[in-house]
Design a protein around this nucleic acid. Structure first.
Lengths: 331, 331
DNA sequence: TACTCGAACTAGAGCGCGCTAGTAGAGCGC
DNA sequence: GCGCTCTACTAGCGCGCTCTAGTTCGAGTA
């Protein structure tokens, strides 16, 4: 910076003004400074800038590498953050990299806010985080939590899916749940309620699972094993999410069970891949773009106006009927 | 930091020593400092640290949100970077966020090295980048480039796939190429060479494509349209990568073309999802973990010893035969 | 002429840390 | 007693930037 200032024949302060696009420099000086900077390859150091300015204008995003729906969200967050003039810092959880570690990384880089995509932490953990910084949780419901929260109306989504299945004539509808995953508790509850509402209380069955393909595969194996032992297959399965649904379909296909002929499958998320599968997956669409917009909006509003109450946005999901659901065989 | 020092009754310098885990402080002082820090929620500011130290010990990684194979690589990079004591900064390309923009973000955060996963830039662009910083390109071949390079032996992988197909009796083997995507040129070349070697020069056909599901869908539609116009379908397709293969299979399934009965499909990457599809995808495995190890290793070696020649690692890929390939119908 | 005023620019402090050079004091041999 | 070394600690500069409080200067105004 000093070099640029010297070569352009101005003070460092003026170079700073030029690079921050602030008033206080004539157009010709601006041009000269920028040209000199370009010549010697100068670029402002964001660490020093951050340090001096006292704020980073950066939003930290915690996501999971293999969670395809997170990719959709991240894409939306980039766009929204840019719109609000914020930087985005990504930190991923992965095998061998815990959520806590990923969050630490974000905080040590002085993110002003942290957006958690489907966090795995407890409410207490999040509240602690919320004390330390501005935090927004996407998907994972945090009852009574202090932090902001964006989620889809899980109940509505599940209800639409269940109404669709029952409307097609299904009765033996099984739910693979998402364990401690975000939104799972609500979906589980909505599944039970819908079954009851349709007079199918006796058929309620929840198979424990999570949000990975593996859990779908396991559930599929379980169901096939039961069939081989003489029990009837369910006629429809509501999976924890799209990935789980994919795993399930793989397991079923391997055992020669046809979808949707013998078993209908419904996913959740409408992640980027779900409409690109060999067979279009019937699923509940969560609008990633809209969720990203709210998440970033919440974070920004908190940052500009410290004294806000916890905010919450509920996005209406929408059932997308594709090829993996249809009437049951028996009907 | 000053607070911690005051409360612990020591100087700021000592707090610094404790947090850097350097010799020069007694155990009891260490404990006291750490305890106080924990109480008031102090955590070193990585921006200030970076500024003072002059180096960030951070590796920048450029990836693409929806490229599933990148997720595998990122996972490996995190592990390797931690092993070498480096931080990882992620920057994604996405819709509305160009590669140049993503790289700028990394550089302005003063990454010491940049690891590009399947970069889209030209050799010249990369050389310019290589002048400014340490850069490693993964997958994308940079002939005559100054920057380090990790890729798999594309030729070997394609050859294995082609030998497998020809061995099963295929002759009409089409290749959907990856356009300007990383590795595509080599794969295309190897495909042509293999066809020639097997005396199938007359059957050579390359359909232009890229590394997305969409390109697979398009190619599938094209092939089906040709069939409807009376031309024979190819008996096997070598796709640009797994995502392209998935798109292709979707298009074929929609049109009632059975895989592998009518058409065998082979992908490339063995990305996380390829063995979790409803039908296991025959594909060429690239070992993401090993590639990550080399990429990080190269970057670190450059950083610790400035005067190295361009490095290159070639990883042997391996054909993984699953359910989408088999003998052609006519045989 | 004397003044006010705004645009264009500058000096210099300070952001939170790391690091070098230094000090204090304990332990040791002679 | 002295000098020596070793451990435990501190003072204070500087990293590259932003920002506040100026200064300078030419144009406009009474």
């Amino acid at each position: 910076m000093a070099d640029v200032a010297a070569r352009a024949g101005v003070s460092r302060a003026l170079v700073s003004i030029v690079f921050r696009n602030q008033p206080g420099a004539s157009q010709e000086t601006r041009d000269r400074v920028l040209q000199v900077a370009d010549e010697i390859g100068y670029r402002p150091d964001s660490a020093a800038r951050l340090l001096a300015r006292g704020r980073s204008r950066a939003l930290g995003v915690l996501f999971t590498v293999h969670q395809t729906f997170h990719a959709d969200l991240v894409e939306g967050i980039y766009a929204q953050a840019e719109h609000h003039g914020y930087d985005v810092l990504l930190s991923a959880t992965a095998q061998g990299r815990s959520e806590a570690k990923a969050v630490e990384a974000l905080l040590s880089h002085r993110c002003e806010a942290v957006i958690l995509l489907g966090a795995d932490a407890t409410t207490a953990d999040l509240d602690v985080l919320g004390q330390r910084t501005v935090a927004v949780s996407v998907s994972r419901r945090m009852p009574g939590s202090l932090i902001d929260f964006v989620h889809s109306a899980e109940g509505k989504g599940v209800r639409q899916a269940m109404d669709h299945l029952v409307g097609e004539g299904h009765r033996r509808i099984v739910h693979i749940d998402g364990g401690r995953g975000p939104g799972s508790a609500e979906r589980r509850r909505a599944y039970r309620a819908a079954m009851r509402r349709h007079g199918l209380e006796a058929e309620i069955r929840v198979i424990p699972g999570n949000h990975t393909e593996e859990s779908g595969i396991e559930a599929g194996r379980l169901l096939v094993a039961e069939r081989d032992a003489g029990e009837p297959l369910p006629t429809a399965v509501l999976a924890a999410n799209d990935r789980c649904a994919m795993g399930l379909m793989m397991a079923l296909a391997r055992s020669g069970v046809e979808v949707p002929k013998e078993v209908s499958v419904i996913g959740y998320d409408d992640s980027h891949l779900s409409h690109l599968m060999p067979v279009g997956l019937t699923t509940v669409r969560q609008d990633a773009g809209l969720m990203a917009e709210h998440a970033v909006g919440f974070a920004v509003r908190r940052l500009e106006n410290k004294t806000l109450e916890p905010q919450e946005a509920v996005i209406d999901p929408k059932l997308v009927i594709r090829d993996t659901s249809g009437p049951p065989r028996e009907v």
